[in-house]
Nucleic acid binder design. Structure first.
Lengths: 268, 268
DNA sequence: CAGTGGTCTAGACCACCTA
DNA sequence: AGGTGGTCTAGACCACTGC
């Protein structure tokens, strides 16, 4: 791909960007905003070495002119990169490529996304459904999900693999009353987001994740193997829909001897 | 404080906000941007119940008009609140107060800030310095801090309290060569950010935090007490300065039986 | 269909850093 | 002193939601 980065010529808009900002048909393809396109372009330039690690990137004004978008749009894209720790911005100085960008495995705002977590560690993720069962809710679950005594749950147990290694044992419980499709039709290998969309007709609005330490239990040991009785991480997730309605609980036993949970954070 | 929220009258700018946006003397006080002032005002209204949990907040245009700032500025403030999970925004609908806001103990981008973590759990934090010593770097530390064999470190050990309960045992190691003030003058009860500023003349640029599980060791048990041999969280922090220079390592033994590490995350 | 949040623009002034 | 990122404005059009 040829990019015109020089400053002299007036020939802008030569990059692959800005080709589909036309307002119609935006929802056909993956609805890319201009800022997102800029973000992806810059990400690609960082990854392929056009912008070297530790080096200073072009200024906001330069990028704005080169790409033919407003500076505000450039800033939106840069803000996203900075939030993920990929670049460092210094007022009065410039924007630098963070040489440690690859050291983190997780991005903020994606702690619940186990697939991305595994990818961030450099493995190929896959999901193996273990069981889907219907059972009464425990007292704790009744409280956490705002249910009535006697209400039932769907318990979806799954095993996440990093390459061929089992790394996360996940148990999601969802009120049975929310189910909108036959229980048997559920495809347990889907992303939890898609499961909620397809079978529950619900959109997840936000999540609260508790990170705890625990000792590997008997059940988890069967699937995760390794040294018995060792310490593991437990990600306790609560998923909520609109109006703060509790949708589901997730209990994820996380083998942190294989998988790292690490985050880059810009200093405020 | 009297706030004019009504829509009929043209009397805006009645709130305490927008009183110090005058451009000079901004650096004397805590340099508050207009967006930050809006952010704080909205936060206060959420906290004091002016905006009830779960209810819909005024629209961006209404806030913009009421406060006499541009919609973009309002959006900046709202974005910050949304990032911290305090509000939920729905296109075509409105902005809602997240009733679960208080459920999280940590804010994104502040995982390294142990003081804030303790505050987020509803305790009063305090720091007790244990020891400051100078010693040779281990092989691992030489690698992680980009040192030469034989280089020395400063090891700063501290104990963090939540009210009267010891909850975090922290060990920070910093290359001795970075020290710019007498070793004896270091005040170990300061925030790590201030320690770097005062005694090392360095500004921390970003941090990478690894979250791991571990078994409570003998040394940590002495300080944290509780059940021996139980699982704890370990926050392994690497601090970096400008130019990706490694500044320090932190090893924080985190008693998650007292302190919760929980995060709110908006669904993307 | 009216109103909401989401996106984008063009221009301005500022604080800050480095030379 | 010149350039950088940080902030703010006023206006515009869009996609989406709920009535």
């Amino acid at each position: 791909m040829k990019l015109i980065v020089g400053k002299g010529t007036k020939s802008k808009r030569q990059t692959t960007i800005i080709l589909q900002i036309g307002k119609p048909f935006m929802n056909l393809v993956q609805a890319k905003t201009v800022a997102n396109q800029v973000d992806e372009l810059l990400l690609e330039r960082i990854r392929d070495g056009s912008y070297l690690p530790g080096s200073r990137m072009p200024s906001e004004s330069e990028l704005s002119e080169e790409l033919g978008v407003s500076r505000a749009t450039v800033r939106t894209a840069l803000a996203k990169l900075a939030a993920n720790g990929l670049i460092l911005r210094k007022q009065g100085d410039g924007t630098y490529v963070n040489a440690r960008a690859g050291d983190a495995s997780a991005r903020f705002g994606n702690l619940w996304d186990l697939v991305e977590l595994i990818e961030g560690n450099g493995f190929t993720p896959s999901i193996q459904p273990l069981s889907i069962e219907r059972r009464p809710a425990s007292e704790k679950e009744i409280f956490a999900l705002a249910l009535e005594p006697g209400d039932e749950l769907i318990s979806l147990r799954r095993l996440f693999f990093a390459d061929q290694q089992a790394v996360i044992l996940a148990d999601n419980v969802i009120p049975f009353s929310l189910l909108r499709e036959p229980l048997e039709s559920i495809d347990g290998s889907l992303h939890i987001r898609d499961i909620f969309q397809k079978y529950f007709h619900q959109k997840i609005s936000f999540a609260i994740t508790d990170i705890r330490s625990a000792v590997l239990g008997v059940e988890a040991y069967k699937h995760l193997g390794g040294e018995a009785g060792r310490a593991i991480l437990q990600l306790q997730v609560s998923l909520f829909g609109k109006n703060n309605l509790p949708l589901a609980l997730g209990l994820n036993d996380f083998d942190d001897s294989t998988l790292r949970l690490s985050l880059v954070q810009a200093w405020s």
